[in-house]
Each structure stands twice: as C-alpha cells, then as structure tokens.
Computed example of a mutant assay.
Amino acid sequence: MSTDYQQARVALGARLRELRTEAGITVRGLAATCGWAPSKVSKLENGKQTAAVADLDAWAIGVGRPETAVELKGRLAGLESTYRSWRRQLAGGHRAVQDALGAQHERTTVLRGISASVVPGIFQTPEYARAVLSNYAELHGAVRDVEDGVASRMRRQEGLYAREKRYKVLLWESALHVRICPPMVLADQLDRLMSVNGLSTVELGVIPLGADVRIAAGDDFWIHDDRLVIAESWHAEMWLDSPEDIVLYRKVWDALAVGAVTGRDAHRIIARARATLTPV
C-alpha cells in the first residue's frame, strides 16, 4: 500500500475518532448503534480499514452529526482518486473502468508504458482482451459486462492511427509466452503485435530474458504526457500526479528502456515466440 494512501486513511480515521469522542460516545456504543462489531470501529479509526460510503453515512448519523457525511465522503473521494481498488472499481462494471482509462488516452499525446506479463491493452485483439478481462474479473469476483469492457478497450486503439500520438511501450519477453488464453488466441495476438510494431505511431521495445538491466521488473505502469502515472498492482490502480512520482516512474522507464531491443530485433523475438505455438 502506498505511504500517501495510508497516511490519508489514518487522517480520515482520526477525524472519525474526533467526531465520536466529541459526541461522548464509546467505541462499543457507536458499534451498537451502527450494527457493527466494535473491532470495525477501531479499525476505521486507526486507519486499518478503508471506509465505504455507507459506513461514513452511518457514522455521521451515529454520532449525531449527519451534516458531516458530506465532509467525510469528500475525504474518502480524495483518498480514492489516488488509490483505486479493483474490487470497488469493478463493482461498477468493466466498461466504467475501461472508459475512464480511455478518457486519459484521449488526452494523452505521448504514452510511455511497460508490461511484464501480458500484451498491453492498447495492442490486444478482442479475443485476447476477453481472456484477460475474464480471468482478472473472476479473481475479483466481478464477471459482469466483460463484453462492454472489451468493446471499450478496442475503441481506445483508434489512437494508434492518430498521427499526433506516440506510443512508447516496453514489453518483457516473458509476456509473449504467458498462456493466459488458448494457444491460437495467443498466436493471433502475437501476429497482431508484429503488425502494430510497424506503425509510425508505435515504438515497441522488447526486453529479452537475458538482457542486462539496471532494475528488475515491477508493477505495470503508464505515463501520460509526464502529467499522470497509472500504476497497477493485484489489488488496485494508483493514479499519481505529483511531480516527484512522475519523475521516479520516468527514471524507471528510462532505465528499463536501455535493456530493450526495437525494430527488426523486437520483431524477431516476437516471431520466435509465435513459432512455438502453431505452424504459421
């Protein structure tokens, strides 16, 4: 969990505790009013659990200060604008998540990104995207509207053909071999990857398995015009716009780019992976 996020969660918990103590209500008393276990009140106050919107409404009413619900939810919104859990995002469906990313892509002229385990969404075929979204949705227990998510992801690829845009993408060679989908789907995906490698808007770098690198692979991330970084982990996305964070992620990208091969060399690595699947 990011330090900034945890600090914000602790600050929200301190405000919740302040409201409770000002009202002269004990932990057990508030828990009884809200129908919770006392441990939930303690976890929320100590920044050990992220509050839901309904929790904040119940808290405000429980301490006799319903008007503070707006303030509390504003604090939560600020917290979640940086740290967006997949569970909460996918509760609204795949299309909402993909459309939010699409809106950022539309605003972006130069996109730098890196992916260690899958072919990036901007290059995916519909079948590959369907497999990726379905598998990760199952992980988080949110399998509805996968098709809408796929459609939104495909619309985002229109930017590949916009002359003013540039896609500078690094891909670890291992991602070319991950069987997150049936072999024929992966074969078609690698064919697609070889075709986009020739687009004037795309600078694709493949980091070979035996490459000398300054740092090891970490979480996938995307830098939008040096104004926003979207970093992904198993449980959340982080949307980071502080200058310090952007400088850090740009340094990581630049360091990894040194170990990548491009152009025909990248094409050969992709073709070699493709040849292991089925006859061309």
Results as ranks from 00 to 15, higher is better:
V63N: 06
L90V: 07
G64D: 03
S85M: 04
A77K: 15
G92A: 10
K73C: 09
I61Y: 07
V63Q: 04
R84F: 03
P66A: 09
T82W: 09
R95M: 07
L90R: 05
D57S: 13
L90P: 05
V53K: 10
A52P: 02
A96M: 07
A58K: 13
V63S: 02
L76D: 07
L72W: 11
S85D: 05
A69K: 06
I61T: 12
L76T: 04
R84W: 04
L79M: 15
A91R: 15
Q49H: 12
A52V: 07
D57P: 00
A54V: 11
S85L: 06
I61F: 09
K73N: 14
T82C: 11
K48N: 12
T68G: 00
T68I: 10
H94A: 09
T82G: 11
G62L: 04
T82E: 15
R75T: 00
G93C: 01
Q89G: 01
W59S: 06
R65F: 05
L90M: 10
T68W: 12
E71R: 04
K48P: 01
T82A: 14
G47D: 04
G47T: 05
K73P: 01
Y83I: 02
G74T: 12
G64A: 03
A52C: 02
H94C: 07
T50C: 10
A77E: 15
G62W: 08
G62D: 05
K48I: 01
R65N: 05
D57F: 14
V63P: 01
T82M: 15
G93T: 05
E71Y: 09
V70H: 10
V70C: 00
G92H: 13
A52R: 15
A77I: 08
E80P: 03
G92D: 12
Q89I: 07
